[in-house]
């Protein structure tokens, strides 16, 4: 390994920062929760997740945590993805393929507008709380 110059050190830090910061969940306000039950995976949730990871990486978004969860019950609508953005209602999207995933990143997470045609509903827990 060659000795680093000041410039090398800074470059190395920048290139690694993104990766390590993914482990730091503090201060991450936006959550992308992907249903990874058997039904979800069969419907392509893994590819969807990869698309989210890739797009968020490309866009350099640092305050997004991508999480996975089990089956939410809407098995016919898999892959389902729940997005929580502060200031916006928690939103559940259905049939999220890789293209829609990328659109969600741009429209919902970056521009704060919903991708209306794929909104399934608010998650049941919200409905329960409102009753």
């Amino acid at each position: 390994m060659a000795k680093l110059t000041l410039d090398d050190l800074r470059k190395l830090r920048d290139s690694k920062k993104n990766e390590v910061s993914k482990r730091d969940t503090e201060g991450k306000e936006i959550e992308v929760i992907i249903g990874m039950g058997t039904c979800g995976i069969a419907a392509g949730a893994k590819e969807t997740m990869d698309a989210f990871l890739d797009e968020i990486d490309k866009e350099g978004l640092k305050n997004v945590a991508i999480k996975q969860t089990g089956c939410m019950g809407f098995c016919t609508y898999e892959p389902t993805v729940e997005i929580k953005v502060p200031g916006m209602p928690d939103t559940l999207y259905n049939n999220v393929n890789t293209d829609i995933a990328r659109r969600i990143v741009h429209r919902h997470i970056k521009d704060k507008k919903m991708v209306s045609e794929y909104v399934q509903d608010r998650p049941s827990i919200d409905i329960m709380e409102n009753k």
């Binding site: 000041l6 830090r13 390590v20």
Partner: peptide
């Protein structure tokens, strides 16, 4: 509990050696 202590790159990524710099 966050970095792998045996990898200097991970320390650097968490602002390691930035103070020395």
């Amino acid at each position: 509990g966050i970095i792998d202590p045996e990898k200097i790159d991970e320390y650097i990524a968490r602002d390691g050696y930035a103070a020395l710099e």
